[in-house]
Amino acid sequence: MGETIDAGGVDLWVERRGTGPDVLLVAGLGDTAEAWQAQLDGLADRYRLTAFDNRGAGRTPLSEEPLSVPRMAEDAAALLDALGIPAAHVAGFSGGSFIAQELALGRPELVSSLVLVSTCARPDAYFRSMTGFWHWMAERAPSERAMLEAFFLWVYTPRAHADGTVARIVEETLAFPHPQSVDAFQRQLASFVRHDTLDRLAQITAPTLVLAGELDLATPPRLGRVVAEGIPDAEFEVLPGEAHQPFQEVPDLFNARADAFWREVGARG
C-alpha cells in the first residue's frame, strides 16, 4: 500500500517495497508508481525500492506554478530528504531519466548511481515534432482508448502489440481510478520538451548506465549515446529488439542488468 508523503510542501504519492540498499524509481510522462510494478516485485528481495507519482500524474496533484524538469527533480530530492535517505541508486525512464539527470546535477550527494533508460540530453527536431503531435492528439482523439492505442505505437514493440501486452495495458490504464487529465499530460509533456542538460552532462559524477532500446522510436539509441558520451565513464548498452519501455516488456532482463550494475557500484564503494 502506498501513502502520501509531504516532500517540501508537495504531497507526493509514494510506493515503497523491500529491504536493502535504497533505489529511487522515477517514472516518465503520464506514468505512476505502478509503471515500476515489475521492479517493485522483482527486486524487493535485494533493495529498498521507492517509486512515486510525479506532479500531475496519478495521485499527486498538479499545482498552478510552472512545471519544469528541474522542479520535478527538486521534488525527488525533497522526497529522499523526507524519507531520511542520504543517498540512493536512481533509475529513471524517458521523462523520468531527464528528472534523474537534473537530480544528479542539483543534489549529487543524493545519487549513488544512475540508470537512465530511453533518455536524451536535448530533444532534437524529430522529438519536438513527435511531441507536438502528442500534444494535440491528447485533445482531439475521439476517446481515451483511441488516445492510448495511438500513443502506445511509440512506446511498445511490435511484439507487444501482437501478443496482447498492449491491449492488456490499455485496459489496465482505462480501469485505473486516477486518470491523468489532458492539461496535466500537456504540461508534463511541455516540461520534458524543454529539457536540456547537454552542456552540463560532464558535471555528473555518479556512476551511470545508459540503456536504449534498439527499436525505440521516441528516444532512439542515437540520443542515449549522446548522454553516455557526455557523462564521464558512463556505460552505454543497446537492448536488441526492445523499444521505449524494456523494464516493462522484458523485466527479468532489465532487473538483472540493473542489479548487476548496482552490485558493481556497491563493490567499488
Score class of each variant (00 low, 15 high):
Glu65Leu: 09
Met1Glu: 09
Phe152His: 11
Arg222Leu: 09
Leu114Gln: 12
Gly84Tyr: 04
Ala202Pro: 04
Met1Cys: 03
His244Trp: 05
Glu229Phe: 02
Val23His: 06
Glu249Arg: 05
Leu253Pro: 00
Thr19Glu: 14
Glu264Thr: 10
Val170Pro: 05
Leu209Pro: 06
Phe185Ala: 11
Asp252Gly: 14
Phe236Tyr: 14
Ala76Asn: 07
Ser113Phe: 07
Trp134Pro: 05
His89Lys: 12
Ala91Thr: 10
Arg55Leu: 13
Gln203Ala: 15
Pro70Ser: 08
Arg222Gly: 00
Arg55Asp: 04
Ser94Trp: 10
Glu149Tyr: 02
Arg159Ser: 12
Glu237Phe: 03
Thr131Gly: 11
Ala35Lys: 00
Ser94Gln: 07
Arg48Leu: 01
Thr119Arg: 10
Gly164Thr: 09
Gly132Trp: 05
Arg268Pro: 03
Gly84Thr: 12
Gly96Phe: 06
Ala82Tyr: 12
Gly28Leu: 01
Arg257Lys: 15
Leu12Gly: 11
Ile204Cys: 03
Leu83Phe: 05
His89Ile: 02
Leu80His: 06
Gly241Arg: 04
Tyr47Leu: 04
Trp262Gly: 01
Leu49Glu: 10
Arg71Ser: 13
Ala27Cys: 12
Val155Cys: 11
Leu239Gln: 11
Asp75Gln: 12
Asp233Val: 00
Arg122Ile: 02
Thr60Phe: 08
Gln248Asp: 00
Leu253Ile: 00
